[in-house]
Simulated assay, not measured.
Amino acid sequence: MEGLKLSNAELMVYIHPSKSGNKLKAICRELSSLLFQYDETFDGVLLAFDVTVKSKAAKILAGLSPYFGVKVDAKLVLFNPKPNSLVEGEIVKISPESIHVIVLGFSAAVVTDLDIREEFKYKMRNGEGSFVSMSHKRHVLKVGTMLRLQVESFDEEVMHIAGSLIPANTGCVKWLEKQSEEVSHMDREDRKRRKIA
């Protein structure tokens, strides 16, 4: 999935002197306070981290409450989907006007009817709505389906993605992967026939 990146960073983490007994625990607590929030410094939403203390020396900051800074090397997993990138998530709600998706368990995404390919038509079956492809009857989008969508925009403040299903490489992830496997299998068969002929 696009929008995820692994980043290495050298950070200075500031810790209250009362937490100096266990620096690693204090560092992890400080970084944990940044999880699942957009941070301009990291240019993304922090999803996970792994830190190692760079040196045992600490820089003491003067002031009313003298914090000390510890240098750490950190490996960060960040989420920042850019326009036109592809992300995947689970469909949680479908209506004739929109498809609502949860990406990575925390970010909401919506695809409005204006951004859904014309091949998909809304249908009601057994009281549940779904979008069914008119050109490929097995390509169905319903609640619980893993959906691949193209990012139109990402609102960092509320972690909301506006998405699109206009490109041909978007839709049900399982169906897209099966189609990709069939195409590669057909390509191999064509190559074999050419070698024989």
Rank of each mutant, 00 (worst) to 15 (best):
A109K: 04
V151M: 03
G105N: 05
M146H: 12
K142N: 12
L86N: 09
E90S: 12
H139M: 00
W175N: 06
H100S: 10
A62K: 07
S133R: 04
D155T: 04
R125N: 13
E177F: 12
S130Q: 10
D113R: 15
V72Q: 03
A62M: 04
A74R: 01
I116E: 05
L141Y: 10
L165T: 07
V77R: 04
A57R: 11
E90F: 15
E119M: 05
Y122R: 01
D73E: 15
S135R: 11
L176N: 04
E88D: 06
D155H: 08
V140F: 05
V103W: 14
N80D: 10
A57H: 11
K174P: 08
M134R: 10
V151T: 05
Y122V: 00
L86G: 02
M159K: 10
K59C: 03
H160R: 15
R125E: 15
S135T: 13
A62W: 00
A109H: 06
V70D: 04
A109R: 00
Y122N: 00
V173G: 04
F79R: 01
S164C: 00
L149P: 08
W175Y: 11
L149W: 08
K123T: 09
V132H: 10
S95L: 03
G163M: 05
G63L: 00
L104Q: 08
M159W: 09
L176V: 08
E152P: 02
G163K: 02
I161K: 03
R148N: 11
V101A: 03
P96E: 15
C172H: 12
K71Q: 05
T170C: 14
G163Q: 09
N84K: 11
R138F: 13
V77H: 09
I116V: 09
C172W: 12
L78C: 02
L61N: 03
E88P: 00
L176M: 02
V87P: 02
K93E: 14
K93T: 13
G163H: 14
N126V: 00
L149S: 06
E152I: 15
K93C: 07
F120N: 03
